[in-house]
């Protein structure tokens, strides 16, 4: 049980923040990788919305493959919080943790930061430290 990495995308597909913990397969070209990841997430959400009987958007909560699990959380403003873990995350409520990352970490350390320019990459040390602490606190870390 472990956490592989974290992505934060904005509505335009820019990767605002990336952090990794235990990632065995290294990324060669990060820009290309982000494009692929964002494209996949975009398709994934479209797919789930289309398959749902309701008219409203129906984002996925998570998916599992034999090798990893991807947890998905998006906001009405188009931010996408993504956490990749091993598939045996068990009962730890990762969805709630992602909401917390948005409500407590992102809002406090990015939105309330007067020096932050919307749409630019997050370089705040306080943000990455806090995020690291929250992720390391996960029971499945």
């Amino acid at each position: 049980m472990t956490v592989h990495c974290f992505y934060l995308f904005n509505r335009d597909g820019v990767c605002l923040f990336y952090a990794e913990w235990n990632r065995s397969r290294k990324v060669k070209n990060f820009d290309e990788h982000c494009k692929l990841m964002f494209g996949m997430l975009f398709e994934l959400k479209n797919f789930c919305t289309k398959l749902s009987p309701k008219d409203a958007a129906n984002p996925p909560k998570y998916y599992m493959t034999p090798y990893y699990a991807l947890h998905y959380f998006d906001t009405p403003t188009g931010l996408r919080f993504i956490l990749l873990t091993t598939p045996d995350f068990g009962n730890s409520d990762v969805a709630r943790v992602l909401r917390r990352l948005y409500g407590e970490v992102y809002l406090d350390y990015v939105v309330k930061n007067p020096l932050y320019e919307p749409g630019s990459q997050i370089t705040s040390k306080a943000f990455s430290k806090k995020l690291d602490a929250v992720v390391r606190n996960l029971p499945c870390f």
Binding site: H4, C5, R23, R25, H33, M40, E43, F47, T65, Y67
Partner: peptide, 14 residues
């Protein structure tokens, strides 16, 4: 198509 991408972005080697 999504399945191919899901495999491509995997953080561990299958």
């Amino acid at each position: 198509g999504m399945q191919l991408m899901v495999n491509e972005v995997s953080p561990t080697k299958g």
